[in-house]
């Protein structure tokens, strides 16, 4: 049993079915990527894992516990964290305040966790008194990761972390994501840039119209001729 898994999830927005028996999972210290064409239900799968959308069938298991019916808040307090694709920082607040808000629910001393974030992303320490809205795209994404790390999550869910950034910044963000994974967390992300994402991923899920079509390690999927042809542009 994996650390976080969604089993045979079926979900719909109103009358429109999005997911059909879709399964994804991720282990601690592992980076898993969900790829697939537009409208395949990648973000929906993530929303179901987070409890922002209720599945009609299937289950979400976290650390051996069934969390299918818990609210988003409850899941976050268990150790899930989510970094949305857009608007993922408080632009009018300083970097430091962003991190503080990430740890809003915590009653204990959060300064150690803040220090951990600064250790992981040293540039943020330099910019800690600047408003997050004034930072570059890559630095903002670091703030977003840092904010999500403040609850000391064991699983981080990232929704298209490299959407709309330049290739150089993309590399920077991917290396940050590897840092997150190497710190022992489970990282599950949805990505548009399938080639690069699968390159660094331990595990990949290819979704098409809400169904799993291919599953395997990142290398296997890149090597698979069908996946290459359909999703990686040859």
């Amino acid at each position: 049993m994996a650390y976080l898994e969604g089993n045979s999830l079926v979900a719909a927005y109103g009358p429109v079915p999005i997911l059909h028996e879709c399964s994804v999972s991720v282990e601690k210290g592992e980076l898993a990527v969900i790829v697939g064409p537009n409208g395949a239900g990648k973000s929906t799968a993530m929303k179901v894992l987070l409890g922002m959308l209720n599945p009609s069938e299937g289950s979400v298991i976290f650390d051996g516990q069934d969390i299918t019916h818990l609210s988003t808040q409850e899941r976050i307090s268990l150790g899930l964290a989510f970094v949305p694709q857009t608007n993922n920082v408080f632009t009018s607040m300083t970097v430091h305040e962003n991190l503080e808000m990430g740890g809003f629910l915590r009653e204990d001393d959060i300064s150690h966790t803040i220090q951990e974030v600064y250790d992981l992303f040293p540039i943020l320490y330099e910019k800690r008194k600047q408003n997050a809205g004034e930072l570059s795209g890559g630095q903002r994404q670091q703030v977003a990761f840092g904010r999500a790390m403040m609850t000391k999550p064991t699983v981080m869910l990232l929704d298209e972390p490299t959407a709309g950034v330049s290739p150089i910044v993309m590399d920077e963000i991917f290396s940050n994501i590897l840092d997150l994974k190497n710190s022992g967390r489970a990282v599950l992300m949805v990505e548009q840039n399938a080639q690069q994402a699968l390159n660094i991923a331990d595990k990949g899920f290819v979704l098409v119209s809400g169904r799993n079509t291919h599953t395997g390690t990142g290398k296997e999927l890149i090597a698979d001729p069908e996946v290459r042809k359909k999703f990686l542009g040859g």
């Binding site: 949305p84 990430g102 809003f104």
Partner: peptide, 22 residues
């Protein structure tokens, strides 16, 4: 104060404030 900052956070980005448990 923490409460004051949470108000600014809520004003800045309601969805993210909810995600942060505010």
């Amino acid at each position: 104060t923490k409460t004051g900052k949470s108000m600014r956070a809520y004003s800045d980005n309601e969805d993210l404030a909810l995600l942060s448990g505010i």
